[in-house]
Design a protein around this nucleic acid. Sequence first.
RNA 1: GCCCGGGUGGCGGAAUGGCAGACGCAGCGGACUCAAAAUCCGCCGGGGGCGACCCCGUGAGAGUUCGACUCUCUCCUCGGGCACCA
Length: 815
Amino acid sequence: MSEIETPRDVYSPVAVERKWQDRWVERGTNSVDLAAAARPYFNLMMFPYPSAEGLHVGNVFAFIGADIHGRFRRLQGHDVFEPLGFDAFGIHSENYALKVHTHPAKLIPANIDNFRKQLKRIGLMVDWNHEVQTTSPDYYKWTQWIFLQLYKAGLAVEKEAPVNWCPECKTVLANEQVIDGYCERHRDTRVTQRYLKQWFFRITEYADRLLGNLESIDWSDSTKTMQRNWIGKSEGADVTFRTAVGQEITVFTTRQDTLFGATYLVLAPEHPLVEELTTEEQRLDVFEYRQKAASLDLVSRKAGSKGKTGIFTGSYARNPATGESIPIWIADYVLMEYGTGAIMAVPAHDSRDFEFATKFDLPIIRVVEDPEKESSELPFTDNVHGILTASGQFNGMKVPDALPAVTEWLESEGTGKGRTQFRLHDWCISRQRYWGPPIPIIYCDNCGTVPVPEEDLPVLLPEIEDFQPDESGVSPLARHAEWYRLPCPECGGKARRETDVSDTFLDSSWYFLRYPSTDHSDVAFDRDLTRKWLPVSSYIGGNEHAVLHLMYARFVTMALCDQGLIDFEEPFSRFRAHGTIVKDGAKMSKSRGNVVVPDAFIDRWGADTFRMYLMFLGPYQEGGDFRDDGIAGIKRFLDKVWGLVRDSTGEGNNANNPKVLRKLHQSIKKVADDIENLRYNTAISTLMEFVNLVRSETESESHAVSPELLEPLVIMLSPLAPHFAEECWERLGNTDSVFDERWPEFDEELARDNEIELVVQVNGKVRARLHVSAGSLESEVVRAASEEQSVRRFIDDKTIRKTIYVPDKLINFVV
RNA sequence: GCCCGGGUGGCGGAAUGGCAGACGCAGCGGACUCAAAAUCCGCCGGGGGCGACCCCGUGAGAGUUCGACUCUCUCCUCGGGCACCA
């Protein structure tokens, strides 16, 4: 018997939860022997950023759902490894540190301690022996090592690129921090564009594989769709136009079939050919236009709503299909970073070109007809049904046929070539900030760019006091010559360190590789452990990371695989996106003041009730609406189970009640199915139904319930309410952890209904219900059904034209 | 604008071609109590009928089917993602 007993022996969550959290630590219940495990199952959840505010309901919801999955797998006999860590580098921590005038290195440990305490309270099956912290030199040493591996592979390169600059914050902003051209923190400060030399990972090299592998990995469809859109594969062609003096301009188009309708060319303002194409008369105007485009920030330049602008260069090129001379313009609606930075404009069949041509009075030539109508409105952009016209030898072809035909013709003429273009950009990892791992690169006056030798890692982030950014546009580290000056590791000459730090997404792009190997200080990840535990068996997280984190992690994994460092190219075999918890129908946010903090609910109701309540709100993959008052229902349910366990007797009863037994076995199947598919809400309903039935049956016999019925119930409940289940399990006379048990055996025989309720319909409307034995013959059912008073009323004076019989379900007379 | 996902009682939600509203919350009535809380029992989509029962009902409209919350098309609406990507 348990030592926790109040006079009336009611369920006291505080005592139960404290007891079992302590005991799990004593017994090592949540630790796995990684080397010895027979059926390894890596249950991963997205590690949190430890904010100063502490855990909110959104975090907790995500962790609990993943934890339930892990505990369920364990009951199915897997050796489940469920690690957790903290993602504490980055601009968030840094901005907060600046706000409260405290160094992030002082702030972060306190936040982490607070988070860890909160996480332990909700009863996760986490093996804390394998915690990682991205801010620890033991960890970021290997983040820097990963950078070096990519550098060696030629996948890390330096390029000049535009960035957003806020003159008020005196720093670079991510695109997400620019709102309609203004800084998110200073709504009256326009963000400007600066060109800086930065480090990029060439993720675009992997675009095709990142896209193709999506076919074979078991991920949420919503996540895969977002990745597909982000990668943005477009099949088209490069087409070369020539000027009278022989300059060549190559454009990328996906509508090479409309080449005969190309009436002008447009180059991006930054296009390298603009200078030489601009004629003397146009030089001033073009110069002004380019100046203006360069001063605009990246985001507002891309916002398409403000109408088209552009300027004529004065030059002309020959359309290779028609031989016509067409003008060359520049306009900022053409982006340098996509395609070739130049387009052929076909105003009749592209809405952007149409808007531009109309505004600047450029010719519009129709080359695709609508087969439905005589003359449809322009622009006509249907690329499935259209028929080519005014296009020489291609006249009469349907667009889908004309596309490859035109490509072939271009290739035979030597004036173009079929090509695939991706929307995905290379990944800029440079941050002109302080709070991140320094990029492990050295610039030597003699040797040029030199990678930091691996044995010199980590490049420690120095603890400087003046970590705030300034208007120079370089990292705060660049103010510390004592840090960045060093002799070149190759020639010993004068050299300086790279002073930018790397993007936080790099920290999180490989953390799952580190977890099993946290005890290995000599390698980033141990070969044998990695082979045994990866790829990750199940990854559960939010779709807010669908494109960035998940894409970067896939890329890094692929690159490491190509380097022969690991032997799989996809890191997460199965990924499921959970939904969002809203409050009163609206997203939780500080400004709305509707953020739900878990602590008060756990204090009042206990972690188990809170866990179950969150899961009961709605389907896990869709989220739910948090109401304060529904939680009592879950507590009442647990109180009922508590009462059953307390009053259970050995010689007990109901164990042979076929009704109860049938419901038990139906529940064993349904709950397993539901948990497997993350439908925790209906799993809980099913358990409630079972308990309701047990109670009503027990009362009528006025006997206590046998443990034979309660043990399977407690096991099924254990992933959802782990502390509660452990206590019940012990009270039922067991000494081991309930998590060393197996999911109850399902007996199909016992689960089968022998008498079923069969619905009788006339013309599809329910008129009666029959109780028949399972597997009844159609003839018997028809006879019984036609004797029913309520059925006869509708069929007596009519002829039955057809009878539909669905065995054990329904019979329908059509009259 | 494009791409995904939704819209069902007072509320959260269940049912994925076969009994709409499981399970829970709230509400109402009753038992217990001096009383209250807790607990237990019952009712709980709308309309009609004394009644057995009948009609209507899953955002709107059409269609497929013996039968549609479920499949198809059009539209409205909410949420999310992308957005001058050629």
